[in-house]
Computed example of a mutant assay.
Amino acid sequence: MTATRYANRQDIDPIEIQDVRCTLQAHRTGDHYAFVVGTTATTSAWTRWSRGAGPQSVLVLPNCPITGPGQDETCSEYEFHHGAHTWQVDDPWNPEEPAQ
């Protein structure tokens, strides 16, 4: 898994990160983001890229603190992300888990 390869690295070159997919709700404009690794209890490293390009940067962003109705876990995206929260989006790579 890509995230575990970078967990203990001090320097991460975005060109080394491959096989990523955007985890945000489907969108036609704006940058794409993929989780790389959790960095602290409240932050995570994310890679960002533009449509048609590979990963261009690695950013440490605060975790999204929002929880869904009746849920104990927070959204798995970064804070202030565009689109719906993770429990509101169908994952096309895991069709057996519909959005709630």
Rank of each mutant, 00 (worst) to 15 (best):
Met1Asn: 05
Met1Tyr: 04
Thr2Pro: 11
Thr4Ile: 06
Thr4His: 07
Thr4Met: 10
Asn8Pro: 01
Arg9Tyr: 06
Ile12Ser: 07
Ile12Trp: 05
Ile12Arg: 07
Asp13Thr: 09
Pro14Arg: 13
Pro14Met: 13
Ile15Ala: 14
Ile17Ala: 00
Gln18Trp: 00
Asp19Gln: 15
Val20Met: 05
Arg21Pro: 00
Cys22Lys: 12
Cys22Ala: 10
Cys22Leu: 11
Thr23Gly: 03
Leu24Cys: 04
Leu24Trp: 01
Gln25Gly: 08
Gln25Ser: 12
Ala26Asp: 13
His27Gly: 01
Arg28Thr: 09
Thr29Lys: 11
His32Arg: 15
His32Glu: 12
Tyr33Gly: 06
Tyr33Pro: 11
Ala34Tyr: 01
Ala34Val: 03
Phe35Leu: 14
Val36Tyr: 03
Thr39Glu: 11
Thr40Ile: 06
Ala41Asp: 03
Ala41Val: 01
Thr42Asn: 05
Thr42Ser: 11
Ser44His: 04
Ala45Ser: 12
Ala45Ile: 03
Ala45Tyr: 05
Trp46Ser: 08
Trp46Asn: 10
Thr47Asp: 04
Trp49Ala: 09
Arg51Val: 04
Ala53Asp: 14
Ala53Phe: 14
Gln56Val: 02
Gln56Leu: 06
Ser57His: 01
Ser57Ile: 05
Val58Thr: 11
Leu59Glu: 11
Val60Lys: 04
Val60Asn: 09
Leu61Thr: 05
Asn63Asp: 15
Cys64Asn: 03
Cys64Asp: 07
Pro65Gln: 00
Pro65Met: 00
Pro69Tyr: 09
Pro69Ala: 12
Gly70Leu: 12
Gln71Met: 15
Asp72His: 02
Glu73Gln: 14
Glu73Ser: 14
Thr74Asp: 00
Thr74Arg: 10
Thr74Glu: 01
Thr74Lys: 01
Ser76Phe: 04
Ser76Leu: 09
Ser76Pro: 00
Glu79Thr: 08
Phe80Val: 02
Phe80Pro: 00
His82Trp: 05
His82Ala: 08
Gly83Tyr: 01
His85Lys: 02
His85Asp: 08
Thr86Asn: 14
Trp87Tyr: 10
Trp87Phe: 07
Gln88Trp: 09
Val89Met: 13
Val89Ser: 08
Asp90Trp: 07
Asp90Arg: 11
Asp91Glu: 15
Asp91Leu: 14
Pro92Leu: 15
Asn94Gln: 11
Glu97Thr: 12
Ala99Asn: 08
Ala99Leu: 03
